[in-house]
Nucleic acid binder design. Structure first.
Lengths: 345, 345
DNA sequence: CTGAAAGCGCTTACAG
DNA sequence: CTGAAAGCGCTTACAG
């Protein structure tokens, strides 16, 4: 293993002072162009790279962003919800473009986010990525704010939570998909998914659902809401419960699910129970995860633009770090119509 | 925003020297227990955390691992192959358990991996995750080795590539799945996927495929191999080409795909062409990505244990960093039988 | 345009 | 068990 070169080695080889080397390598205009080029060439030859620890220590910033993922129960080994997995790629890309490194970590594993990342100078800012359920983390988020940490949260604006948020319009998404179902002739509905304020994103989807029904004078046709966290298993179980509680003759025309994962479980249970989707009951999801296009029937859902989301999350955080004014952003939701809602029902 | 506390502030508050604070916080046995507890309490009160940059600079190590992802063309926005996405979760988890941070980055975006990470002291070691196609990166990997960088590669052992590798037995996987198809009565085959040495993992699967055929005296029943990179689109196109080249009467009993993504495209094209899977032609994939369980028909495939893979990748790298002896590891592949290979054909 | 010097916040021999 | 001191490798006023 070669000894690592330092800026002093470069200085020695180039016959200049170490200060000049530092300036040359940071492309300071203060240094003579010819000298700078020579230094840069020598640095390259000696395979020299600026030591980030030293540089960060001196500059008091790290050029690194920390991504805190909230752990989810999943069916595979990743323990990351597929929706967030696709955001991860986009965030990684956006960081790279901005010249920032990305530190990835599961949220649940450590106690004090601010301390862990920004205080210890490992990151200049933090991105919080979870299924909107920040309620139990409220104290931590408050502390983040109180400590002046730079952070951005994925989710809707929420008066209770300080800090900037980037999110997708869950209310509109829920409204749009149900309006579509009503337009297609469906008249009675069930919502599967948590709808309390411990799951604000799901709740917003549910409220959108309720509004669409109300607008069409169908409020009395809601056959209820069944809790389910965002897994296939929870969707399956909730459907089982529903089938037990609702008599065959009064079954809903459509089941609106708070997420695709839930919808997948719902369709599984319906298939097991011999109920045809979409002929007997229509099912729709939310998120447009990759699997949604491949399920049988393929799943009508609402797409959240993960690419844009990742970019906005990063750019907003960088603005916050630079002390520029930042504001919440709510991306529009986009309806994706597939087979599970029937074609001409 | 509060001023950040330093070890001197703690020292002042505790009435001891800064050295003692440092020792107390690193749980050094050299410091009096009572003193240590007092210092730790004060540190907590003042919300003090050790500055990682300073600490790393002094210790010359970062307690961070860099993950270099090879960018893939994908159908969604993540630009990460779903198979790697699930490994990502497992790697993140394994790092967290080991007390290491994980720096994630796309490989293609920078030139000199070693310099970028280990030389600049941002990471103690590197995990390389790509679809086995390290051929074009050979020079870089050689340089990594030459420079004494600690790194682990995902993929099979390869005499041409130095360094440790953790991989799954692609040869066995290919052999097992084809043997299963033969046992089920299939007699003629097509392989879809690159099989050259620029794609060593696919190639190993292909060799396993060939061996299984040969063993059963079916070598002459291979109706060819069609190149395809690991995307649905490539699988679709290759199938189109195959259908054009092979007359209806001599179509294969089974199509063996180098990856699930390819198989998904193959099944799509077959469906478009009115060919029934599995009744007319059997299709199998490789990887067991989440979608495989949901396609119609669900996909028979080979599972690589991503959870174990992530853990091995991390533990092996940590051993390498600690200068412990490390060796390649080849995990067994596991056949996952679903509908796409027919039940009793 | 360049150099000498200070200092970022730690850890760890060294001396007691 | 504790403290004074050196030094990790940089960046950046300061002086010229």
């Amino acid at each position: 293993m070669k000894e690592k070169a330092t800026s002093f080695d470069i200085a020695h080889a180039a016959g200049v002072s170490q200060s000049t080397v530092s300036r040359a390598l940071s492309n300071s205009p203060l240094v003579n162009q010819e000298t700078r080029e020579r230094i840069q060439r020598i640095a390259k030859e000696l395979n020299y790279k600026v030591d980030k620890n030293a540089s960060n220590l001196r500059k008091q910033r790290s050029n690194t962003i920390a991504l805190l993922l909230f752990e989810d129960p999943t069916s595979d080994d990743s323990m990351i919800n597929p929706f967030f997995l696709s955001m991860l790629g986009s965030i990684t890309r956006a960081c790279a473009s901005a010249g920032y490194d990305l530190l990835v970590s599961f949220q649940n594993m450590n106690d004090d986010w601010h301390a862990e990342y920004e205080d210890s100078n490992k990151a200049d800012g933090i991105i919080l990525l979870g299924y909107g359920d920040y309620t139990e983390y409220k104290d931590k988020i408050d502390m983040l704010e109180e400590q002046g940490t730079h952070f951005v949260r994925w989710g809707a604006h929420d008066a209770e939570h300080p800090g900037v948020s980037i999110g997708c319009d869950n209310f509109q998404g829920g409204y749009d998909i149900v309006s579509h179902l009503i337009a297609k002739g469906n008249r009675s509905f069930v919502f599967i998914g948590e709808a309390g304020n411990q799951a604000p994103e799901f709740q917003a989807r549910y409220f959108g659902y309720l509004k669409a029904l109300k607008e069409q004078g169908l409020s009395q046709h809601t056959l209820g809401q069944y809790d389910a966290i965002s897994t296939e298993g929870a969707g399956y179980d909730a459907t089982e419960q529903m089938l037990n509680e609702i008599t065959l003759s009064s079954r809903p025309d459509a089941i609106v699910c708070a997420s695709d994962l839930i919808a997948l479980g719902v369709m599984q249970k319906l298939a097991d129970a011999g109920v045809n989707v979409p002929d007997d009951i229509v099912v729709v999801g939310y998120d447009n995860i990759p699997v949604a296009a491949y399920s049988t029937p393929s799943l009508t859902t609402v797409k959240q633009n993960t690419k844009l989301a990742g970019e906005l999350l990063v750019s907003t955080l960088l603005d916050a770090i630079a002390n520029k004014p930042v504001e919440d952003y709510l991306m529009p939701a986009e309806l994706v119509v597939r087979q599970s809602c029937g074609s001409n029902k």
